[in-house]
Structure formats: structure tokens, C-alpha cells
Amino acid sequence: MVTSLVLVALFPTKAQQNIQFSQYIFNSLSVNPAYAGYKEQWFAQMALRSQWTGLDGAPRTGQISIDGVADPTKKNIGLGLQFSSDKLGAQSANSIYANYAYRLRLDDEDTQRLSFGIGLGLAQYGLDGNKLRPTEQGDNELPTGKISSLIPDARFGIHYTSPKWYLGLSVMDMFSGDKNNGIFRGDAGTAQNLKRKRHFYLIAGTLLDLSEDTKLRPSILLKEDFKGPTSLDLSTMVIFGNKFWLGGSYRTGLTLWEKDFNKGQSLSQLNSVSAITQFYVSERFRLGYSYDYIVSKLSSIQNGTHEITIGLTFPQKGRRLLSPRYF
């Protein structure tokens, strides 16, 4: 099973989506560097995701991030730091990104901001050939031991926010657009392994008042790499008294146009449905949990996906916590 999972990434004609979190709605820094500083106070979050539990070699992802504003008076400069670690069978990926966002103030009341962000980082990719169990020996495309490579990377994004809605566009893996840019070089048979492609993200959402202390927060996340399936997340959260969030998400594939990987095939677009909750233990500390149920044929050989997030706000000395940030 490990071999089959990894071989998906070994074919140069297909691309693999970046790591994903069902709870991106609580901290969008992982998909858009222009989000840095949105909460206008320093905020740290840890996310742990165990995907397809019960399946040998299934993805395991961890991420730690911190971001805030560097100039607490004007709040024009957002800074962020993000660490990620991801494992899929014999494949591993670790990365670090430093993010910078310049936040333009659009109105006198300072309720609208347009941010331009850039992230610079390094990604280390590895493949452990010892964990591969091919059905036929002597395949020169598979390494006999561990191989790895350190690759520089960049990402860019634009993010607009107002009290009632937000919209963001971003491009990730900017240095990975060259079709000859294989991650592993210098080893026979590995130059085309685990190729990366640029990823484009669109995020958007709004906030609706249901009653004095109940709000509805629908949102979407569109992911595109122009090689693999287009992915769409549709999410809705109900917010009770600014402390308890409860909702769900539906993830599916889209066929916006005919792509090479799908020619002559009839692949299911079904992916997963998620139950998501977040609770503010205090004004500074919050916990989030989500469970993804696979609705494709993969559901019969795994036990779902669990994701936990922990968030901590660091208010500036002598300043009160700001009103809740819903986006």
C-alpha cells in the first residue's frame, strides 16, 4: 500500500495538490501570505492532521505558524512565520516560510484593508527507498536508499477584508513552474520524481447576522494546479456568542475543462464531507477539531481523517484584546 501511495507522485504527467487543512478557515496563512497580520495581534496556531487513519502510509501533517502586525499603531505591516511537516508513505516534505504583507487602509474608519503579501522559504523533500515494496525488482526509477533535496520557494498573495466579507488570491510554489524542475537531481532515474507544480488558490467568504448573538459564516476555497483535478471546498460555520463555532465542509473535484490526466477515463469527483467545530476556552485560547468522512470508494479501507488545531492570541502590553476576527 505504501508503494501505491508514493507512485502517485512519481509520474511526471500528474501533479499532486499541496497539503490541505479542513480548518484553514481559522487561519488562512497556510494558503495566502497576504493574510499575515489580519488579526492585528500576534497569533500562534498549531495544526495536526491525520488523514485516512487505518491506512498504512497515509498522510500525516503538522504545521506551526505565528503572525501579527509589526507596527501596532498604523497596522500596515504584517509578518508571519510558518513551519510545516508532511509525510506520505516513503515521501516526506518539511518547509519553513517567512511571510511579509503590506496592508493598505481603504477607509477612514479602518474597516477595510487590501493586503499584498509575499512568502520566501525553503522546502526539503525526501524519499526513502527502503520503505518501497515494488512488485517487480530492478526498477531503476526507484531509489535504493534515502534521497533528499533542499529547494528554495516563494509564494505571493492578495487579500481583501471588510467586516462582512473577504476575498483572497494566491500562487504557491512559484519557483516550481519549470517542467524540467524535478525535485531530485543527480541520481539516476530520479530526475523526474516527485515533481512540483505551481498551485493557485482562491478563498472567499462572508458573514451574515442570524440574530443578536448568532452569525453564519459561509466560505469557499478553490485549489488549482492545471495538471491534477480542480478542488473545491464549500464550508459553513454557525457562530454562537462569539465563543462556539459549529459547522461543516464539503470537498469535491471540479471539471472546469478537459485535462490530460482525465482523458479517456471516468474518475469520480467525490472527495469528503467534514464536521468542524471551534471553541474559545478563553479570549486568548481556542481549540478546533474536524473529522473528514471520505465519500469515495476509498472509504471502505480507511477510518476517516482527524484534525486538531490549537490557537493562542498574544495581546500587546497595555492593550485590550480586539473584537473577534471572523475571517
Rank of each mutant, 00 (worst) to 15 (best):
A98K: 02
Y100H: 04
A101E: 04
L104C: 02
L104P: 01
D108E: 10
D108T: 08
D108K: 15
D108P: 03
T111W: 03
Q112Y: 08
R113G: 07
L114S: 02
F116W: 07
F116Y: 12
Q124K: 14
Y125H: 11
Y125P: 03
G126T: 01
L127G: 02
L127F: 03
D128N: 15
D128H: 06
D128F: 00
G129W: 09
K131R: 12
K131W: 02
L132M: 05
L132E: 01
L132F: 07
P134F: 00
G138N: 06
G138M: 02
L142K: 13
P143Y: 01
P143G: 09
G145I: 00
K146R: 13
K146E: 05
I147G: 00
I147L: 05
S148G: 06
S149E: 07
I151F: 08
P152Q: 11
A154D: 04
R155M: 02
F156H: 02
G157I: 05
I158F: 12
Y160H: 11
Y160W: 10
T161G: 07
S162H: 08
Y166F: 15
Y166T: 00
G168H: 09
S170K: 06
M172Q: 15
M172A: 14
F175G: 04
S176A: 14
G177P: 05
G177R: 10
I183F: 04
I183S: 14
F184T: 00
R185Q: 13
G186Y: 10
G186H: 09
A188E: 12
A188G: 10
G189N: 10
G189M: 05
T190R: 15
A191Y: 14
A191S: 10
Q192L: 11
N193H: 08
K195Q: 15
R196S: 12
R196L: 13
F200Q: 12
L202V: 13
I203D: 13
A204G: 15
G205M: 04
L208A: 14
D209C: 04
S211I: 01
S211K: 15
S211A: 14
